[in-house]
Design a protein around this nucleic acid. Sequence first.
DNA 1: CGAGAGTTATTTAAGTTTTAACAACGTCGC
DNA 2: GCGACGTTGTTAAAACTTAAATAACTCTCG
Lengths: 165, 165
Amino acid sequence: MSTEPAVEPRWLTDEEQFAWQCYLHATTLLEDHLDRQLQRDAGMPHVYYGLLVQLSRAPRRRMRMTELAQNAKITRSRLSHAIARLERSGWVRRENCPSDKRGQNAYLTDEGMRVLEKAAPGHVAAVRAAIFDRLTPEQVGHLAEICQVMTEGLQPQGADLPWLR
Amino acid sequence: MSTEPAVEPRWLTDEEQFAWQCYLHATTLLEDHLDRQLQRDAGMPHVYYGLLVQLSRAPRRRMRMTELAQNAKITRSRLSHAIARLERSGWVRRENCPSDKRGQNAYLTDEGMRVLEKAAPGHVAAVRAAIFDRLTPEQVGHLAEICQVMTEGLQPQGADLPWLR
DNA sequence: CGAGAGTTATTTAAGTTTTAACAACGTCGC
DNA sequence: GCGACGTTGTTAAAACTTAAATAACTCTCG
């Protein structure tokens, strides 16, 4: 019955532990900060803002639910709830997909577009203030590289997120 | 009434936009991944696991609620709920603080310690697999630097998070 | 065609987080 | 002492997320 991990796990080195601590602090603080900023200035959390951004960039400002969920890296269930809320706010609406009777398109209303345009400058300013105005161009490059490497290692296998293969 | 932002906001450059995209993808995927891993292997989300880790490292495995909330970067309210849940699981318990009658200490039970020790190897392995086994030592250094810079810029002013000064 | 299998999106219920308000205690100054 | 003010931790309600189940539709293949 040697189901146990036969070997002592490789713990993190001091450098790695330190980096991990820094990472956790920075990412949670930033996410909190952006959530508060957007909640205050645009009346929605960061994830919801991201949905509006996606829609605003899509052709005809509309997108299939599943595609939107994939781009935003959230489950379809979560997206359903989110779109329902955004619909209540009048910023997004749904329509049946012409080509697939199961499908739905979410589209950004004019009002949603206005809200987005109004919120964007403040959001960009917050992102700048937190990151890009504080990092050198080299560091920005490093950050992108590091995040790319991380993303490669995170092909989700989970129940509802088998995306990115 | 020139309340409007007088100038066109400085949008992100292409490099910055790319880095930001990478950052958002990587961080959300990683957090999702760790949440699932811990939920599956230890029956709790990442934040709760972090609380147990904090407690395990504290003297006598106990800590004041506010200090714990600060270290974990969460609000006291959120911590109250979290500890209530962990208490229901039998992994943490509360006790009155002897020196301050308002205060509470949370402490890690023996059972909580066992759960933590059982979950730790898998968690470290997941973190390794996602990050440290994929990055060069230089990149780990860069990551730590970048996150430190970000953290400096995020001194929260918000209602319940005026922490880190 | 038509059964079986997979896809799309939603719903329900349970769990978590946020927000605002609150009770209880401590501290400082007078 | 005592009153104003700050701190500690909790709570109620609303908002949000997750997990599991489901309805409706499409696709594949015999």
